[in-house]
Amino acid sequence: MRKKKSPVSIIVLMIFFILLLVPIYWMINTSFKTNTEIQRSMTWVPQKFTTKNYTSIFISKLWQRSFLQTLEYVVLNVAIVLIAAVPAAYTFSRWKFKGHQHLFFWLLTNRMAPGAAFLVPMFTLFSVIGLFDTILAVALAHCLFNLPLAIWILEGFMRGIPRAIDETAFIDGYGFMKFFGKIFLPLIKQGIAVTAFFCFMFSWVELLLSRTLTAVGTKPITVSLTRSLGAGGWDWGLIAAAGVLTMIPGAVVVYFVRNYMVKGFAMGRV
C-alpha cells in the first residue's frame, strides 16, 4: 500500500531546495548585470539586463582556451584513471595477495592527502620531467586523489559479481581480455558510470594543484576565475558569468548519468 507523502515533508523539501537554489540564483542574477549596477544597488532581478559579461567571455580567447583545456585535462584524467583503476580493482576484488590490505589502505590515504602538502614536490617533479604547465601534468597530478577513489568504488561493485561468472567464462574458453571486454565490463557499467561521475567532479573542481602546475600555456578554468582583476577591483559581473558557465558541464554530466546513478547508488557501495 503506497503511503501518501505528508504535506509537512513536502514543505520541508521545498524549503530546502529553495535555500539550495537562492545563492545560485543570486549569482545568475549578478551575471546579467552591469558592474555599476552590481556596486550600486540590490536588486533581485537586473534593472538593466545585459549579456555583456557573457559575450566578453565568449569572444575572449582566454576564456575559450580555459574551458577547452580544463575539459581536456578532466576527460584525460577520467580516461587514465579508469584504464588504470579497472584492472587494479579487479585484482583487489578477486585475489587476496600478500599485502593487499596494506596496499589498499595506502591507496586510500592518498585520497586524504591535503593538496597543500604536495605543492612543492609536485611542482619540482613536473618541472624536472619537463611537463610543467601542460594538460598532461594536471591530468596526472589529479590521479593522486581520483585513482584511489576509483579503485575503492569499482572494487565494491566488482565484489558483487560472483566469481562463478569468471570461472564459467574461462571454462568456456574465453581468453582473459575477451572475458573482460565482453562479459565483465558490461556487468559493472553502472559502477563505471558512478566512478566516472565522481572522478569528473573532483577533477573539474580542483583548484590548488591545477593552479600550481600551470602558468601560461595551460589555464584551468578555476584559475582564470580567480584572476579576473579589472582596474576597479574584481570584475564581479564577469566572474559571476564565468561561474555560471563552469556549472554547465557539471549539470550536463549529471543529467546524462542520472539513470545510472540511481541504479548504481543502490547497487554498490558509493
Binding site: 543570486w26 573542481v205 559571476a240 556549472m247 549539470a251 554530466v253 549529471v254
Partner: peptide
C-alpha cells in the same frame, strides 16, 4: 539533478557564489 548541482560547482566558484 538538483541535488547534484552544488556538488558539481567548482569549489572556488562556490567561494565566489558566497562571496557575491
Amino acid at each position: 539533478v538538483l541535488l547534484g548541482i552544488p556538488l558539481l560547482i567548482p569549489w572556488n566558484v562556490v567561494g565566489i557564489i558566497w562571496r557575491v
